[in-house]
C-alpha cells in the first residue's frame, strides 16, 4: 500500500491545541510523521473482511453493573489535596483559562 499522507501538519497542530501541549516546529514535523506511521500500521486491519461481523462496543459481555444509592465517607480534604502541586484555602489552584 502506497504511503498516502493521512495526517497533515495542520492536523498535528490542531491536536496539540486540543491536548494543550505546545510543540516546536521540529516536533510538529516528527509527530506528523509518527502519526502517519501509526495510522499506516492500523491500515493493516482494513485487510480483514468484517462485512458480516457485528461491531463490538464493549469487550466484556456484562451489562447492568450497578451500585445502590448509599453514601460512603469521602476523603478528608487534606487527603484529597495531597497530590496537588498548588493549593489554597482548601482549593486546587489551576492556571486560568479564559
Amino acid at each position: 500500500m502506497a504511503s498516502r499522507k493521512l495526517v497533515s501538519l495542520e492536523q498535528t497542530e490542531h491536536l496539540s491545541w486540543l491536548a494543550k501541549v505546545e510543540l516546536s516546529e521540529e516536533e510538529k514535523r516528527v509527530f506528523t510523521e509518527q502519526l502517519n506511521r501509526i495510522l499506516e500500521f492500523f491500515r493493516k486491519l482494513d485487510e480483514v473482511d468484517t462485512s458480516n461481523v457485528q461491531p463490538t462496543y464493549h469487550v466484556v459481555e456484562l451489562t447492568n453493573v450497578f451500585r445502590e444509592d448509599e453514601p460512603a465517607s469521602p476523603l478528608p480534604q487534606e487527603e484529597a489535596l495531597r497530590n496537588a502541586a498548588h493549593k489554597k484555602n482548601g482549593y486546587f489552584v489551576a492556571p486560568k483559562i479564559v
Partner: peptide
C-alpha cells in the same frame, strides 16, 4: 444521596471545598 459514579455524598452545597471527593 450520592454522585453518579461514586458513593460520595451529593449534599455539597455550602460545604468546605474538596470535602466531598474520592
Amino acid at each position: 444521596k450520592t454522585k453518579l459514579f461514586c458513593s460520595c455524598p451529593s449534599d455539597y452545597r455550602g460545604k468546605p471545598p474538596n470535602t466531598h471527593t474520592c
